[in-house]
Amino acid sequence: MSVELFLFYLAATVSLVSTILALTRYNATHALIYLIISLLASAIIFYLVGAPFAAVLEVVIYAGAIMVLFVFVVMILNLGARGDDLEHQWLKPGMWLFPGLLCLILFLEMIYVLSGSSQNLAGTVVTPKEVGIKLYGPYVLAVEIASMLLLAGLIGAYHLGRRYLVDSRKES
């Protein structure tokens, strides 16, 4: 087995383990931490198969933006002194050991890959420029359809969210 293949399987294992842990945690915050690790692991896999742009997007958009938003929402929902206690309870030092270990594996892998001593599995590298040319060339309609999809989702979220607020005000 070549080094690259070993790195791929290692990242895939991290991804699987963290996803399973994310699904089985009772605590939403802990689950989210594992979910972030799972996304980081997929980013490493993307990098290994020669798609650095997808890897960056995975980190910036999923792990960076969306998941941080999730974590904030979960934490903001528990306001007050009780929330502080809970947060104190959640953030026990021991809690960080295993996610930290998984992250460390990914970090070492990343350093090894970036040091340039290895090749990627696919043999070719898809640069951001190529992705851009594809997206605004043959796939331009897909971009348009995706924008409509987002608008539909936005309107749906707006409608459902609005109703929830109105109802809870009535009850109180």
Binding site: L141, A142, I145, G156
Partner: peptide, 16 residues
């Protein structure tokens, strides 16, 4: 690509 985007556009609207 267009098949899956079409499916999702249909699905996301129907959820709401």
């Amino acid at each position: 690509a267009s098949m899956i985007l079409g499916l999702e556009l249909l699905g996301v609207s129907i959820y709401t």
